[in-house]
Design a protein around this nucleic acid. Sequence first.
DNA 1: TATTGTTATACTCTATAACTATA
DNA 2: TATAGTTATAGAGTATAACAATA
Lengths: 155, 155
Amino acid sequence: MTTGHELPMALRAAYLALHRRSEAAFAPLGVTADQFVLLATLARGGHALTQRQLARRMASDPSTVRAMLVLLERRGLVGRDAHPTDARARTVVLTAAGKRAFARLWAAGEPIRAGMLAALTPGEADALVGLLARVAGALTPEADRVPLTPSEDDA
Amino acid sequence: MTTGHELPMALRAAYLALHRRSEAAFAPLGVTADQFVLLATLARGGHALTQRQLARRMASDPSTVRAMLVLLERRGLVGRDAHPTDARARTVVLTAAGKRAFARLWAAGEPIRAGMLAALTPGEADALVGLLARVAGALTPEADRVPLTPSEDDA
DNA sequence: TATTGTTATACTCTATAACTATA
DNA sequence: TATAGTTATAGAGTATAACAATA
């Protein structure tokens, strides 16, 4: 009876629910769910990232990322500096205001993360992350895959 | 070490991969991934649905669904008729052309569904659907939950 | 009064293609 | 030649609020 349609639909339903809750949680702070992901990627990147690296890690498009960066830069949350060795590239960093905003956003998102985990045992949460990664891998063309080790960023 | 961030990010990555592959698969047929979901909801609904019922089942907004319906109606894939008993409502149905288009779309999506299932054992696929449903339930406000039994559609 | 759907409106994300500058 | 980023452009989904018609 399972035609294979259930899995994509369940995935879609879960993601959309997450996305909507996130939009609602971050809206009072003037940030969208996708902008939060960008800021989080930057915050956890450690060092400054180029726009291309950022796009890869977010599984997004350089042109899309640029549009988002323009909005975030206008609000003073990110800055774009010249790359130290590559004059073509620009490095993206969180500003001081961006770091403060991200701290508030992280707190605002805590109930969502907690709510998701509360619906699962720790073992189930791990299993779910693993299964999702397998599915994502099966759906992602080799070339677009996000490297697990930062050293492969430029591939 | 798990702050709870991994799960939302894994969910996002898997959904985005699915969405992109779907867009690419359906684009030659002139339909977006979300439009496919609308058509699939209609195709599996059996009887005609009102726009509100459709929006609920797609976990979407009536206003959003209307915008999509306008596009699909212009292409002749769906029709909107007067509701038999409620003069306010309109029932949405697949036209003959819509049914033919959906058959082609379903075939075009087959490799995607198969690819997802191939990455999992049957037991894992079932488990994944179940876990996703639990997570979606935890993230969805009671009022917005999609009824499992069609009889509750008007709640 | 509440509900179905429409309209107007606005914003974000998405992505392609052509372009400049640099590697 | 290939790559990083910009620009122009377009489309799609999202959602809110005000509104008309009907229940």
